[in-house]
Amino acid sequence: MKNKRTELKVSAIRSGTVIDHIPAENTFRVFAMLNLENSTDHVYFGTNLESSKLGKKGIIKISNIFFKPEEISKIALVAPHATLIEIKDYEIVKKEQVLLPDEIQKIVKCVNPKCVTNNQNVPTHFKVIYDHHGKMKLACRYCEKTMSIDDIEFV
């Protein structure tokens, strides 16, 4: 019942993608990462919605757009528990949790200004690691620096 009420706060879409269970504080980050401010299709979003899993969550619904795997891994960096739902003719055709790959290539900039990837024409490459508090970090394959997710900047 509770879930249904949450759903109704953001309009249903006929066809497209729903990204649910975004941490509320990252809703706009996901919005920007997917370049949705330049979208010409219908985009609906809500944030600070009640969520039993996250406390406060965000949700984004985008008409007519289905995402490529590298775009999904981008989302996973700031919304690791997000659910991705694909809809066709008001029917859910696919529902899965976003998956963070073990390695992140090309999409994130290295935080170290002296890293070779910021000075030569070479795509970035990070390993996803976890520190002793279990916090997710990215370790640069080249300069070996690690950075926390709060510091990441996308290419």
Binding site: N112, C115, V116, Y142, E144
Partner: peptide, 9 residues
């Protein structure tokens, strides 16, 4: 080389 990671590259 002065750049961090240049040797890996």
């Amino acid at each position: 080389n002065p750049l961090d990671g240049s040797a890996r590259l």
